[in-house]
Simulated scan of single mutants.
Amino acid sequence: MNEWADRRRGALTFRVTQVVSGHGCFGHYLHRIKREPGPQCHECGAVDDTAQHTLEDCNRWVEERAALRLVTGVVDLSLHSIIATMLGSERKWDAVASCCEQVMSQKEEAEREREADPDALPLRRRRRGRKRRAYVRLDP
C-alpha cells in the first residue's frame, strides 16, 4: 500500500474545493460565467481576481495569509505549493482548510450583499423561482 492510499487527513470541504478549482466567488470565475461585468477584485481592485490572487496577493487577506504561514512554515502560496503543504501533515491540512473557510465565507457574504443590492446590474442580482427561469442573460 502506498503512502497516499493510507492518508487519513481531512476531507475536501466545499470551500477548499472552491480555492483549489478556482470555481468560487472570484471575479475571474464570476465574469467567465457571466455573473460579473469584469474579472476585477472587489477587495483590492486588482485587474484579475483568481484563487491564486486571493491566496498570494490580495491586501484584504493579509492576516489570514500570515496565520497560514505561521502554522505551515510555507512562504510560497501557489496552488501547487498549498496542495503539497496540505498533504504534509494533518496540522497543515487543517491550517489550509481553516484559511480557505475564513476567506471564502467572507467572500461569499460580500457576494450575497452585492446580489441583494437593489441598484446592482441585472446580471448580478440573485435569481429565484419564476424570475430565475425568465431571466435573460445580457450579452456584452
Rank of each mutant, 00 (worst) to 15 (best):
V19S: 08
H23D: 02
C25P: 10
F26I: 01
G27Y: 01
H28K: 08
H28D: 15
Y29N: 04
H31F: 14
R32Q: 08
I33Q: 02
I33K: 07
R35H: 06
P37R: 04
C41M: 08
E43G: 06
E43C: 13
C44Q: 12
G45S: 10
V47I: 01
T50I: 11
H53M: 05
L55M: 15
C58L: 06
V62W: 08
E63S: 09
E63R: 11
E63W: 08
E64M: 07
E64V: 14
L70V: 04
T72C: 14
T72F: 10
G73W: 11
G73N: 09
V74G: 05
V75M: 13
D76M: 09
L77M: 06
S78F: 04
L79K: 12
S81Q: 14
I82T: 15
A84V: 12
L87Q: 10
S89M: 05
E90I: 11
R91M: 12
K92M: 10
A95E: 12
V96S: 04
A97K: 09
C99P: 06
C100S: 10
Q102W: 07
Q102N: 13
V103D: 12
M104A: 09
K107Q: 14
K107R: 15
E109R: 12
A110Q: 13
R114T: 02
A116N: 13
D117T: 07
P118I: 05
P122V: 14
R124D: 01
R125Y: 05
R125S: 02
R126N: 05
R127Q: 14
R130H: 09
